[in-house]
Nucleic acid binder design. Sequence first.
DNA 1: TCCATTACTTATCATTTGATAACAAAATAG
DNA 2: CTATTTTGTTATCAAATGATAAGTAATGGA
Lengths: 145, 145
Amino acid sequence: MDKKQLFHQFVAFTAAVHQVTHELTQNVKIDNITPVQYKILEYIKVSQPVTPTEISDCQHMSLPNTSRELRKLQERKFIKKISDTEDRRKHYVCLTEDGEKIMEEAFACIEERFQQLIQHASKNDLEDIHHALNILDEKVFNPKL
Amino acid sequence: MDKKQLFHQFVAFTAAVHQVTHELTQNVKIDNITPVQYKILEYIKVSQPVTPTEISDCQHMSLPNTSRELRKLQERKFIKKISDTEDRRKHYVCLTEDGEKIMEEAFACIEERFQQLIQHASKNDLEDIHHALNILDEKVFNPKL
DNA sequence: TCCATTACTTATCATTTGATAACAAAATAG
DNA sequence: CTATTTTGTTATCAAATGATAAGTAATGGA
């Protein structure tokens, strides 16, 4: 396996991944939420509780801009902030009940589309996919130091 | 393999893919080019010649906005337009020599980072990765109808 | 106690991006 | 030939995002 060739395959693959994730998420239309706000909610949903600094790092945006978007999400009652009892500079961000509700709906919508995507896969195919995801995760996308 | 479980693995995987592609491309800093413009150039690079309509569809942006960005890229001599001799409404967009140059540099930069990412992979690992990419492409991301 | 650092907020401004209307030219269908 | 459709452009406006300066409060170290 030539490493150069593998790179080209990798590029094509990531392009396909971006394309498909776009298709899966495009019809998730939460009322008046911007793409960046959705990304933040998605991150909170799977990682809560998180601090603004973690969101900032992970979503590649500055802390002031993160703070602004969090304020908007808080005003709309999708998230809440709890300050750390140890270090009172820190704030933990969580979804509210409303926030949980809309994110569960969003994920359900994405899952439905995902299931359509693999509807024709056999039991063996599913095993293969599972295994392939593991391999790539382990050897490329989540390399253990 | 439970399909629900597979979905969760899929979500985590795509998040990791986005994260890694961001890291691979983040230090590609072409002088004064916006993210959207870079995306367009990347698409032209791998698919040229392409029409504005194709770019518009593929990059999920309106034709007027596509046209605007193409004009800017043309003003900076990164791309050129050639009209179809058959159907003179159509314009084929290609990279100029300058455009080719900057995109080759960009890809070289990304490839370098990619090679770092897999530097510790054995010959067998590379085979595994190659195979895993094929499986996923075939069964999930480029499903043949 | 004083100073530096960390975590976060507020405010402001510029740029990028998205949305839409109006238009022109070429092709195509009736 | 005329009407419609396709392909693309220009112009304009609103909204989202990015960048930066300045400030607050809590922590921790000298």
